[in-house]
Design a protein around this nucleic acid. Structure first.
Lengths: 336, 336
DNA sequence: CTGTTAGCGCTTTCAG
DNA sequence: CTGAAAGCGCTAACAG
């Protein structure tokens, strides 16, 4: 900036004013400064500027477990879009589910003075946030509530979606409905299981533990679990899956075994509507999640009159998409 | 930091030394400082530190067109992993293919003093980089070479992969092989088309323009184009697709029309091996792309003896995965 | 309208 | 081993 000032034969202060768009600069000098900026290819140091002004850095930190999972990728995009709209940049860290890395990322982010953090928690407990978070750094968790810590969060209607999907299967005549889910320790896993159970109970059916497989994290283990269900003497005629990897795993099992069953599951995916079995998808809008998360952060950033709103919980609604054939006529084998 | 110093009853300088891990501090004072840091929950301001030291910011900027596309998501993950290994953070911008946003992102990144930029160019020309890039900010483009600008790049073996895949289709007896591709203006689109043509020529076959559809960017248009191919009097018995969206679109068309054909295409995808038609996939390692990109950047960052290596071009090799049935026996309809 | 002074939080340099 | 002084690039707050 000094160089620009020297070349334009003005003080650095005048350069600063021109760059900020301050009107109180004579056209003549303004032109000289602009010419000098041009010639030198000068670019104002955003960091020094923010530093001096003491305001935010204009960055939001995002911590996800697996960017390769379409769900998180889509989520990241939604958040990026939402914060970009407010002129903020996104700093992304992938933890691969490692809670140590999650914690380290929080540390690093707070050291970098991000304006806020969006966190998809990996572990079962986020109490560590209390020690890591400096006062005034807002965090919003996404997809899972912050266990052991007070913070805003944006959730999907896990219970409702699972309840509705299972209900649709029941309405279509299915009576033996399998369950393929991520571990019960994961919030979404337990909530979606609750929804599944509630729908069955409401239909006057009990939970057949033989039909329930919980704990699959990846597609391969989901496929194995699905194969076990299909090997039962009385296999399920439909399977509810708590996430895309389980749904995909279930479909793989069906194909490999040459079997058929109606599939229902959370998260839409690319070929859901052209598979060889009916697929019911519990869908929701990742952009909305991003938007709401950004909103929650923004409200904590701008110091409005109210000092500190209590932790808020936003729930994004789900919709059911019936792909392929309709819900699937109750198959010919008469369960129970 | 001053507060910590005050609480520990030492000078700020001593606090700085402790935090940096400088050994030249008496154990007694060190302990006092550490206690104060603990009590105050103090976190050193990384920005101010970098600022003063005048070195890098420890951040890399990544610009992609569509994070929701599994290809870019996987790429982003590969790059994140590679730079994280060197202790760098990733700042991500999604341009949605908008070159104005791409350019704005470059400006913003340079203002933020990122240490390097990884760019997946959206437009046909990146000559603008010359005016936007301050001296010393290294850029490496990925997936496409930097048109109109000198810079390192990491490419996939587009030609070779397309050539090999088409060759496999020919070897399996296919003679009418359709082509579904992104626009010729896109580097990958034209390279992969070249590979397709080369394989056909080598087999003594000409290019039948009726079988070639170029210009599909999304799944829906790819499906429409595929449907046109299938509606031909002599439809192709196999289709080569230049990217995952075209492959998926082609499969959708097959399913909706109740037809069959062997599919071949760039980019592996989730259910490729359990579809109802044989699928040949041109695969490559996104992690390798990220690693190589990070390497290229690093070499430009650390001022080694050699002042400025010339722009380098790294090509990542591809492999063919035969999914589903094998390449697919030449179907019964005898093309030409 | 323009320039000078001072300081954001930290660290380098140089004296103790 | 410890601290005081100076300054990274920029901009509020004041003078002129």
């Amino acid at each position: 900036m000094k160089e620009v000032a020297a070349l334009a034969e003005v003080s650095p202060m005048t350069v600063s004013r021109v760059l900020r768009g301050d009107t109180a600069v004579s056209p003549d000098r303004r032109a000289r400064v602009e010419a000098a900026v041009q010639r030198l290819g000068y670019r104002r140091n955003t960091l020094a500027r923010n530093f001096r002004q003491g305001q935010g850095t204009g960055t939001i930190g995002l911590i996800v477990t697996n960017l390769a999972n379409p769900f998180y990728a889509r989520l990241a995009l939604g958040i990026e879009a939402a914060v970009a709209e407010e002129g903020l940049r996104l700093m992304i860290t992938n933890t691969a589910g490692d809670t140590a890395r999650e914690r380290a990322a929080i540390r690093d982010f707070s050291g970098r003075r991000v304006d806020g953090v969006v966190l998809v928690p990996a572990g079962a407990d986020q109490a560590y946030l209390a020690e890591e978070l400096p006062a005034g750094l807002p965090v919003v968790t996404v997809a899972r509530p912050p266990a052991g810590h007070e913070a805003d969060c944006v959730l999907v209607d896990d219970f409702g979606g699972a309840y509705a999907a299972t209900g649709r299967l029941l309405a279509a005549g299915h009576r033996r409905i399998g369950f393929l889910g991520n571990p019960p320790s994961v919030y979404t896993g337990s909530e979606r299981y609750r929804g599944y159970c509630a729908a069955l109970h409401e239909a006057g059916l009990g939970i057949d533990d033989a039909l329930v497989k919980r704990g699959q994290e990846d597609m391969a283990s989901a496929e194995a679990a699905a194969a076990e269900l299909l090997a039962l003497p009385q296999p399920p005629t439909a399977v509810f899956c708590t996430n895309n990897r389980n749904t995909l795993g279930a479909y793989r099992a069906l194909r490999h075994l040459g079997r058929s069953a109606t599939l229902a599951g959370f998260d839409d995916f690319d070929l859901a509507d052209v598979l060889s079995v009916p697929v019911l998808v519990v869908d929701y809008d990742p952009d909305e999640i991003g938007r709401r998360a950004a909103e929650l952060l923004r409200e904590r950033l701008s110091p409005t009159g109210t000092p500190a709103p209590p932790p808020r919980r936003v729930v994004v609604r789900t919709t059911i998409i019936a792909h392929g054939a309709d819900e699937g006529p109750a198959p010919d084998q008469s369960g129970r």
